[in-house]
Design a protein around this nucleic acid. Sequence first.
DNA 1: TAGGCCATCTGGTCCT
DNA 2: AGGACCAGATGGCCTA
Length: 256
Amino acid sequence: MDSDASSTCSRSSSPDLVVDDSAGSFFSNTIFQKYCKENRNGSEADQGRTEHGGGKTKSRSELSKEEMQDLRLKVNSRERKRMHDLNQAMDGLREVMPYAHGPSVRKLSKISTLLLARNYILMLSSSLEEMKKLVGDVYGGGAAAQSRSTAHSTISHAATSVHLPLHPLAQSLHSLVGSTPTALQHHSSPPSSAPAPHSPPSASFLGFHAPVQGLLKDPLHLGGSYRHFPGMPCPCTLCQPLPTATSTLHSLSMNK
DNA sequence: TAGGCCATCTGGTCCT
DNA sequence: AGGACCAGATGGCCTA
């Protein structure tokens, strides 16, 4: 089920659901069935009371059971649509994460997606800071202003040529991918070509520890399937010998 | 079979 | 009043 990477999930749901489908799920609901039972019993008594006031807007208490039912279906439909939109946004987030994409790769859970996204943002921020420092070092204090003016070209060059301290996420990624370097297919393989068995990432992959660990499943076998983005520093530990001045990312990720 | 993840329903609250 | 947002409850599916 989770392996379904399409924007719509494999569940019986669709963003453009209208009353029909929603009615299906609604009618299958036990609460609704109970409601129907009660409705059947009291329907005669209600009949006369609910007929009045044609045309005028009624308060909720004045609505007939049928109207209440319609209202309920409408509300349910809206809520369903809202959740679909939310899930679409979540899928959009998944797409831009440095994580394997492909039919054979299991989809990140929502919580995993959010946690990974957070770490990823922290990693990028840290990278940016390091690059700024490097640029400052290379051009010296006097040239700092000038270097700032040429920041665009310089940074883009630095991004491809300099290894940055990305240790925490890199460790996390490698805990996801596995420990053997040969298992990795760096800088080339399309994610879908990875023939690996797949499970969702664990808390350690996401760079979080005790607080989240209980929430996520543990073992992962994502052999060689995470993505390297062109122009971006590779976050893996193999590419990134950890400098002594560890970035703040780790501490940041710890005090979640 | 237990646990994780998810979709859906539902009622409450807040905002426009 | 109507809609958006939220959280709890429920039940289904999947995996270890």
